[in-house]
Every structure is written in structure tokens, then in C-alpha cells.
Amino acid sequence: DYYQTLGLARGASDEEIKRAYRRQALRYHPDKNKEPGAEEKFKEIAEAYDVLSDPRKREIFD
């Protein structure tokens, strides 16, 4: 679930989605986080943001 990936509730505003993405992206960015799995988590976060930030894709997902 993309909302869960970003730590959001369904119905989150565009601003909340953007804030959550930035927070998670900084936390799991491969240059900042060298833990195994961080790069994969970063890709999941980017995919979630891509879907939720686009109104058309978000409507299909919801």
C-alpha cells in the first residue's frame, strides 16, 4: 500500500504526501543510509510518491 509506504492515512493532502516523501527519501537515500535494503526501500518510496502525487494515478489507485 503506497500510503503505508509513506506512513500516511488514506485521504492525505498533497502537501502531506510531499512532506512524507521528503522525510522518507532523506531517511532511506542510498548516499545517506548504507544499511542493506535501504536502496530498495528508497525505490518503493519513489514509486509511492509517483503514484500519489499524480491525481490521475492516485484516483486509479484509490
Rank of each mutant, 00 (worst) to 15 (best):
R10H: 08
G7S: 09
E35T: 12
D1W: 00
I60C: 11
N33T: 15
T5A: 09
H29R: 12
P30D: 02
Q4Y: 14
Y21T: 03
V51L: 09
A20G: 08
D62L: 10
A20E: 09
K18Y: 10
I17A: 02
K34W: 00
H29G: 13
I60L: 11
P55C: 06
G7M: 08
I45G: 02
A48I: 00
E59Y: 02
L52P: 01
K32F: 02
I17H: 00
H29K: 01
I60A: 15
Y49F: 15
A38K: 08
I45K: 05
I60Q: 15
A48Q: 01
K32W: 00
E15H: 12
K57D: 03
V51I: 11
L26V: 12
E59I: 04
Y3W: 07
K43R: 00
E39P: 14
I60D: 13
E59T: 07
E47C: 05
D14V: 12
I45V: 06
L8I: 14
K18V: 12
F42D: 04
G7F: 02
A38P: 03
Y49P: 03
L8E: 03
L6Y: 00
Y21E: 03
Y28T: 04
I60Y: 07
E59S: 07
D14P: 08
R58F: 01
Q4M: 12
D31E: 15
D14M: 12
Q4V: 05
E40C: 12
P36K: 14
E59F: 03
F42E: 06
Y3H: 05
E15P: 06
T5D: 11
D31H: 13
F42A: 07
Y49K: 05
K41V: 09
I17Q: 01
Y2E: 01
A46V: 07
K34C: 06
A25F: 15
K32Y: 02
G7C: 02
E44V: 05
Q4K: 13
I45A: 11
A9P: 11
E15L: 07
A25E: 10
F42I: 09
A12T: 06
Y28P: 02
K57T: 05
I45Y: 04
Q4N: 14
R58A: 02
I17D: 01
R23T: 10
F42R: 08
I17T: 02
Y21M: 07
S53F: 02
D54F: 01
S53R: 07
E44F: 06
V51F: 15
Q24W: 12
D54L: 02
K18Q: 15
R10P: 08
A48F: 00
R56W: 08
G11S: 10
F42S: 09
L6V: 01
L26C: 10
T5C: 11
A12I: 01
R56Y: 07
K18E: 08
I17R: 00
E39M: 14
D62A: 10
A25D: 03
Q4E: 02
G11I: 07
V51M: 11
E40N: 13
Y3T: 02
R23W: 13
Q24S: 09
E40L: 15
A9V: 09
G7H: 04
K18T: 12
K18C: 11
A38E: 13
Q24I: 12
Q24A: 09
A9D: 04
R27W: 11
K41Y: 06
K18D: 06
G11W: 03
E35H: 14
I45W: 00
Y2D: 01
L8G: 01
F42T: 05
A12C: 12
A9F: 04
D31I: 07
D62G: 08
E47M: 08
E40G: 14
E39W: 10
N33P: 11
P36E: 15
A38Y: 02
A46M: 14
D50A: 13
I17V: 10
A20F: 01
K18L: 13
L52M: 03
Y2N: 04
V51Q: 03
A48D: 00
R56M: 06
T5Y: 06
L52R: 01
E16H: 04
R10A: 09
A20P: 00
I60S: 15
D62F: 06
D62P: 09
Y49D: 05
H29F: 10
D1S: 08
D31T: 14
D54Q: 13
P55A: 11
R23Y: 04
I17M: 02
R58E: 04
P55D: 05
K41R: 12
F61S: 11
Y3I: 00
R56T: 15
P30I: 11
Y3A: 00
K43A: 06
D62I: 04
S53N: 04
A38T: 12
L26F: 13
E40D: 09
A25L: 13
E35W: 13
Y49G: 08
I45C: 12
E44L: 12
G7E: 15
R27M: 15
I17Y: 00
G11P: 04
A46W: 05
K43L: 02
I17S: 01
A20M: 05
F61L: 04
A38H: 06
E39N: 14
H29Q: 12
A20N: 09
A9S: 08
N33A: 14
D31K: 12
A25K: 09
K32G: 06
G37P: 06
S53A: 10
R58G: 04
A25V: 14
D50W: 04
R22G: 13
R58M: 03
L8K: 00
K32N: 01
G11Q: 06
N33I: 08
S13D: 08
A25T: 11
S53W: 00
E44C: 07
E40M: 15
Y2V: 00
L6I: 02
S53T: 11
K41E: 05
P30F: 07
D14E: 11
Y49I: 06
F42P: 03
E59D: 05
D14F: 08
A48P: 03
L6F: 01
R23M: 10
E15Y: 04
Q24G: 06
S53P: 00
Y21K: 04
P55N: 05
K34G: 05
D50C: 11
F61Q: 04
A25I: 15
I45T: 05
Y21F: 12
D14A: 12
D62Q: 10
A48K: 00
A20V: 04
D1C: 06
R27H: 10
D14I: 13
L52T: 02
E39K: 15
I17F: 01
D1F: 02
G11D: 07
E15F: 10
H29P: 07
D62H: 03
A48E: 01
V51N: 11
E16S: 08
D14R: 07
G37L: 08
E40V: 15
I60T: 15
R56P: 04
Y3M: 01
G37S: 08
E39A: 13
Y28M: 09
R58I: 02
R10Q: 14
Y3G: 00
E16Y: 00
E39V: 14
L26W: 11
R23S: 15
R22A: 14
A46H: 10
E40T: 11
D50H: 06
L8V: 13
L52N: 02
D50I: 07
R22E: 15
D31Y: 10
P30W: 03
Y21P: 05
V51Y: 07
P36Q: 14
G7N: 05
Y21C: 03
P55G: 07
R56S: 13
A9Q: 11
A25P: 00
R10V: 09
D50E: 04
Y49R: 05
S13T: 12
E47S: 07
K41F: 05
S13K: 08
R22V: 14
S53L: 10
R58Q: 05
T5P: 05
L8Q: 03
T5R: 04
A38G: 11
P36N: 14
D50K: 12
D31P: 05
A48M: 00
A9R: 09
G7Y: 02
L52K: 01
D31M: 12
V51S: 09
R10F: 09
L8M: 03
R22H: 12
D50L: 12
V51A: 07
K18M: 12
G11N: 07
G37V: 10
I45R: 01
R10C: 06
P36R: 14
K32C: 03
F42K: 03
R23P: 02
R23F: 13
R22Y: 10
R10S: 08
D1A: 03
D50G: 11
E40Y: 15
K32P: 04
A46S: 13
E16G: 02
D31A: 15
K32E: 05
E16I: 02
K18A: 12
R56L: 08
D1H: 07
E44S: 11
T5I: 14
R23A: 15
R27T: 13
A46T: 15
A20D: 00
Y21L: 03
R58N: 03
